[in-house]
């Protein structure tokens, strides 16, 4: 117990890194996911094939492998990326692919009549997407997006392998010094649980507010 308390400041600090990684990757992932979903749905030539390949590759390979590739790949071409940016790139590419699928599903679930109604007002395809279809699909996708974020929060632990001192790596570092894996991992688990639960709580409230009318 004493050890848990002693190591708490360091673990809390690392938790901030974890939350920060998840938030930054989620923000980028949302943009990637939405854009790639739109590109695929609009069947933009070439690009939509690229996006399909991207989603297929990401969903068909382990996140851990993706993290290693992003970290060790680009330097082969003389492009150096620090561990934290590498982690964010890998995580956002990963989460972007999953969100792309969620958004595509959500957009396709908006009834055909909505697009037609927008057309009859004289809107272009993209205006209709922006004003009518996407806002509705975002509301539909919200629960999935929330779950993806919670998954991401926990997946950040994988970037410990590329020297990012987030919660798991910090735990390992403390265990190397103190030889108390049970205490430290338990503390880390509690922190992960706390972060996920806090977010679920926020998510539920947002969902209730936003999805009233869909």
């Amino acid at each position: 117990m004493e050890l848990a308390l002693q190591s708490l400041p360091a673990l809390l600090q690392a938790s901030l890194v974890t939350v920060g990684l998840a938030a930054a990757s989620m923000a980028a992932g949302l943009v990637i996911g939405l854009l790639s979903a739109l590109i695929r749905i609009a069947r933009i030539p070439v690009l939509s094939h690229l996006m399909r390949a991207y989603v297929s590759i990401i969903r068909g390979t382990p996140l851990l492998v993706q993290i290693y590739l992003v970290y060790y790949g680009p330097p082969q071409f003389g492009w150096h990326l620090e561990p934290v940016p590498s982690a964010i790139v890998a995580l956002s590419l990963n989460v972007g692919a999953y969100l792309s699928e969620s958004f595509r599903g959500a957009i396709e679930s908006v009834s055909k009549g909505q697009m037609e109604a927008a057309y009859t007002l004289g809107m272009t395809y993209w205006t209709a997407m922006r004003r009518i279809i996407v806002p509705q699909s975002l509301r539909t996708a919200l629960p999935t997006v929330g779950n993806t974020y919670i998954g991401l929060l926990k997946d950040t632990s994988l970037v410990s392998v590329i020297t990012v001192t987030e919660l798991l790596r910090q735990s390992n570092v403390i265990i190397a010094r103190t030889w108390k894996p049970l205490t430290i991992y338990m503390t880390a688990a509690v922190l992960y649980w706390f972060m996920s639960t806090m977010f679920s709580f926020v998510q539920e409230r947002v969902e209730r507010r936003v999805s009233r009318h869909v």
Partner: peptide, 20 residues
């Protein structure tokens, strides 16, 4: 076509109001 649509109202059987 868009020009025509702008000057033509259309009322659907299933209303198709924007729910949001």
């Amino acid at each position: 076509v868009r020009e025509i649509r702008r000057h033509t109202g259309f009322v659907f059987q299933s209303f198709n109001l924007f729910p949001h």
